Simulated scan of single mutants.
Amino acid sequence: MPAQRGLGVAVIGTGKMGADHVRRLHDVISGARVAAVADIEAERAKSLAATIDGCTAYTDPAAAMASGEVDAVLIASPGPAHEAALIEALGRDLPVLCEKPMTPDTASCLRVLEAERRLGRRRIQVGFMRRYDSEYVKLKGLLDGGELGRALMLHQRHRNLAMPPGFTDDMLITSSVAHEVDATRWLLGQEIVAVAVHRPAPSSLAPAGMNDPQFVLFETASGALVDVEIFGHCGYGYQVQAEAVCERGTVRIGDEQGPRVSVDGRWGGHVPPDYVERFEDAYDREVQAWVDATRRGEVTGPSAWDGYAAAAVCEAGVVSQREGGRAEVELIERPAFYG
């Protein structure tokens, strides 16, 4: 990889998230360039590639990865397409940053884990970007520092202005609460062993047939309890908040930031409309860290094991969602490869 040309990245998927990563790699991140984009929507890929010198558009991810200009892969396509792209990248020994979910279910996750283990070295980082958010990093530091004592409970809230058409009850868990799953495992440093999903009366803003909001309860290996409010159609903006309740104190993140304005007999501030704005800095830090590590020949950040563990918790959540009651999380023994 010639230093002067930077890391050549193929971005797989050019929808909302993929296009934002293309912008990020081109305009924000140092040490990398967008060498290729791939999408089954040929015109969309071509239009995006045309905005970047030296970028080639493909409809086949494998063809993009085969380009001699590509040194690494960023996967931002829909979840069901991730397994094939990951296996292709591993077959070519290319480092990968894969947006969550790594794959949509544990069976496909295990196939990816096995392919990476056969390769003999880590190549996959999963895109749980909250680990790079400045507030989450500070919360993690406080919990690890020990001053507050052992974490007993973790309260989390995840509210969206509205969900896109076609969003389902299952996806409230697998696409949204998946972030709280990883945040819980990372912040507390332990696995989630059981999940229970409770459903209050649905909001009038929720689409017909969707149970929204929902209340999710995790049990961790050490006995900590974690609750998650997921509200997909809150109607006013995008909010993510967390509060850790520990033996000797509490710490809360996610309160509104920015200027508080008082005018015309009222006061208020800005609530971001979506995750792209709320976690813009986190995405920037995540991708820059991935590029830097890749250029050093390293893989850091959430691993394929983290992607698998999140999928297992989400599967248990969907079982509880459909059948009621408490569902235990089924995990294989963690391979030493991911120790």
Rank of each mutant, 00 (worst) to 15 (best):
P164H: 08
D105T: 14
M65F: 10
G120M: 12
A49Y: 01
D292A: 13
G235M: 14
A196R: 07
E333M: 10
R5E: 12
V263F: 03
V22Y: 02
H179R: 07
R44Y: 09
R252N: 11
P200K: 05
V276H: 09
D20E: 11
D284C: 15
G268A: 15
E280D: 13
L331D: 04
R117T: 08
A316R: 00
R266M: 01
V37H: 04
G324M: 06
Y308M: 15
E243L: 14
A201M: 11
P78S: 14
V251I: 13
Y338C: 03
P302L: 08
R121H: 15
L143D: 03
T294R: 09
E69Y: 00
G307M: 03
R295D: 04
A196F: 02
V73I: 06
R92M: 04
Q190V: 10
M171Y: 10
A151P: 15
G15E: 09
P164T: 13
R5P: 02
L139C: 11
V319M: 15
R118L: 14
G68E: 08
A201H: 11
G325W: 10
R33F: 00
M210W: 06
R131N: 12
G8K: 02
G68T: 10
R285P: 15
G120H: 12
D105W: 11
L205T: 08
G13C: 13
D274V: 11
A282I: 01
H155C: 15
V287R: 06
L188W: 05
A35K: 03
E43A: 15
G145F: 11
I75E: 00
A36D: 06
A45D: 08
P207E: 02
E333A: 13
S134Q: 11
D182Q: 09
L142M: 09
F231N: 12
A81F: 05
E180T: 09
D264L: 10
G8L: 03
R121P: 05
A151H: 12
L148C: 06
F218R: 02
F128W: 07
V329M: 01
A49L: 02
S77R: 00
A293V: 15
S176P: 05
A76I: 11
L119C: 13
Q125H: 05
Q214C: 09
I230L: 09
G149N: 02
G254T: 01
E219R: 12
